[in-house]
């Protein structure tokens, strides 16, 4: 018997859904089925928060014409494939893209070595020998914008100052009082990984913090 049943087999007859779909819908998301996943591709610019911080520009976020940039946006990226690789340390040492405490971008995937014997591979479509598909074990939100780090500081005690967490930093720790992982993907862009079952809770925490800083949810087309 294989472990095929662990993998998300998204397709037109079996739509895969994020645990945060309901909250995204409530925030006005426009959904499209992509690769079998029902993903929030865009949000109306009115899905904004109570407090606007209009003076902050977001250089790294492509914007639709006429849509003001939020100082922080968050997108549900739970649909991206997640693989878990477990092997003896010397075997993982031999894998080029795996370095402890770092997320290394290789192709279209992040290779994240969590411990000496355990790694996650985020994104990508290529098969990885010996890896388990744990896509729906980890829900994921991507925060971006100049206030992204400040937003995370409202619910996470990890030290994400640029010197301590340069681009590519991989930081397991408490995220919104839940076990989680933070990856600094780019200058003003962070990915949060957390348990699938806590998705709704973490979205609500992120939304609460981000909206207070003038943020709003964004669709994956804005990433």
């Amino acid at each position: 018997m294989s472990l095929d049943f662990l993998a998300v087999h998204a397709g037109p007859d079996a739509i895969a859904r994020s645990p945060m779909e309901g909250l995204a819908r409530a925030a006005g998301a426009r959904f499209e089925v992509r690769d079998g996943w029902n993903v929030a591709v865009a949000f109306p610019s009115t899905a904004v928060a109570s407090v606007a911080v209009a003076s902050v520009a977001v250089a790294s976020v492509p914007q639709a014409p006429g849509t003001p940039a939020p100082p922080v946006g968050w997108a549900d990226t739970s649909h991206e494939r997640t693989l878990e690789l477990q092997a003896p340390a010397d075997e993982l040492d031999a894998v080029e893209h795996l370095r402890l405490g770092e997320a290394v971008r290789a192709g279209d995937a992040w290779w994240c070595r969590l411990t000496r014997t355990r790694a996650l591979i985020l994104g990508g479509v290529m098969p990885v020998a010996g890896a388990l598909d744990v896509t729906s074990t980890y829900a994921s939100l991507t925060l971006l914008g100049p206030m992204a780090r400040e937003t995370i500081a409202r619910f996470c005690a990890l030290d994400l100052r640029p010197r301590m967490a340069p681009v590519g930093a991989l930081r397991p720790g408490s995220v919104a009082r839940q076990p989680g992982i933070v990856i600094r993907e780019a200058e003003d862009r962070y990915r949060l990984l957390f348990g699938w079952a806590t998705g709704e809770y973490v979205w609500s925490v992120v939304a609460d913090a981000a909206e207070h800083l003038g943020g709003r949810p964004v669709g994956i087309d804005q990433l």
Binding site: P19, S136, R177, A197, T198, E200, Y201
Partner: peptide
């Protein structure tokens, strides 16, 4: 905020 797990 109260951490909560919810089934899919």
């Amino acid at each position: 905020t109260q951490p909560a797990r919810r089934s899919a």
